[in-house]
Write a protein that binds this DNA or RNA. Sequence first.
RNA 1: GGCCACGUGGCGGAGUGGUUACGCAGCGGUCUGCAAAACCGUUUACACCGGUUCAAUUCCGGUCGUGGCCUCCA
Length: 468
Amino acid sequence: MALTLYNTFNRRKERFEALAPPRVTMYVCGPTVYSYPHIGNARPAVVFDVLARLLRRTFDLEYARNITDVDDKINAAAQEQGVDIGEITEHFAHVYAEDMRALGVAPPDMEPRVTEHMDDIIRLIGELVDKGNAYEAEGHVLFSVPSFAAYGGLSNRSRHEMLAGARVEVAPYKQDPGDFVLWKPSDATTVGWDSPWGRGRPGWHIECSAMARAKLDRSIDIHGGGQDLIFPHHENEIAQSTCANDAQYARYWVHNGFVNMETEKMSKSLGNVLLVRDLLKTAPGEAIRLGLLSAHYRQPLNWTEQLLREAKKRLDGFYGVLLAAELGPAAGSTAEVPAEVIAALEDDINTPQALTALSALARQANRASDSDKGELRRLAALLRAGGVMLGLLKQNPEDWFKRGPTAPLNPDDAKPAMEDSVIDALLAERERHRQERDFEAADRIREQLEAHGIVIEDGPGGASWRRK
RNA sequence: GGCCACGUGGCGGAGUGGUUACGCAGCGGUCUGCAAAACCGUUUACACCGGUUCAAUUCCGGUCGUGGCCUCCA
């Protein structure tokens, strides 16, 4: 099987072919660092993390995900708090990295920041001006959309259609209503850089074009991001980069769907956001990650408490297999990734199908668990390898069951925490009662533990416990 | 108004021109001192109307509905 990806540009699934194998270049639009990431922001990070893991199996991947640290929303936040923008961006870049790590997202190979590529941005704008694709007007530099005949190819709309639906006032200095800003002037109180067009700062779209070229190449294999970036952001990137580089900008455009709250898009402007760090207080990072992977990446995902609960239970099932097989932590595992998992992921990153393959392995393993320990261990190792491929099942199963969430999903379910040593002591006491066939006393201890969210499981090797 | 998705069983969610998705929940059973876990079995699915076809949930057209983009947004 070969990798196929849905290419937004052609609106169909296509077989992936690298421009210059074994090298593959991938650029994904990363965060603008001015606030805490919400679960919707986490989706592309997780999805492209899975794609990156898949690509690394067969290619020499160069994966860049930018950090936008110059932006008017950052400026607004900095002015409001009376601090330098660097304080805001440093803080939230750190928060983003922490939250993504908690979700099992491996850092990309490169995380370029806009402020570190101002020279590249200014050079790129200069090239566009020289080529006649951009012009200066009232301190601004604008991209001339009519100069790029293929404009609208990604979002599948003509300039005429866009004008019909335009809801924004057209700035008077624009030669064409569709023209967009590459560089804009900064006043004395706003952060700015010296340029041939005066002190100013970059517009929204140019930084990705500049960093993709600086960090990867003039022509890249895969460009990813959320569906809301298709227009205007990615459309404008194509215009800038194609004109400046005289080359196809990106061969495959991959866009993830939104995370919704009650079927409505989660967005900062609507205020209906669920922060990753708040979710991490209620559930393990792997459960949140599995929740994000439980629907196909292009489908909308309705984020609910039930979704998260089901994700956690599914992981409980998988870890139950690993525990029975006494596998321990993931490090050092040499098992091959199951072919079904690879096949599912190669089919346009079909993560629900990959999870189905894991469930099938778990069932087979459980079936074998009583009669054939060797088979159990073999299947469990496959399950683990498939899970790790998805960024899951990396923990020691014992830790998974003994370390509950720091807070329950529902505050009403709050139960007083209990020390491991206390639990172990109570369990030993219960064992004595059971030896003496005093089941009433034994059951009282179980109820006592239950009240603390602890479940006892009696097995052939004695009793064990786990946190719900 | 333009463009684009989507509408699957109690819920979530894949997929396919003719064969069990899978997960969660429910019900029955095996196991267990009782449980839990696990396993086995099980419950009315493919919005509606036409068309193509030997055969459509799957292809085509229409209707209705939901959502997204067209403006900062993953």
